[in-house]
Amino acid sequence: MGPIGAGIAVLGAAIGIGLVGYSALTGMARQPEAAAKLQTAMIIAGALIEGVALFAVVVCLLK
């Protein structure tokens, strides 16, 4: 079951990171002068989502 669980966890993370990337790109396209700030915020949000996904993957590997 471990690999299946890892796959499900990655599904959620993919949706989350996809949404972050989508909105950051939209924001950058509309306001190129804010690109640097948006990029920092995007990386931080991505890292937080990724952290949760990695918890799930580690739990899957443990079992």
Partner: peptide, 13 residues
Amino acid sequence: FALTMRLFANMLG
């Protein structure tokens, strides 16, 4: 704990 696991799991992964 999140800082621990994020770095560890990223590099090990």
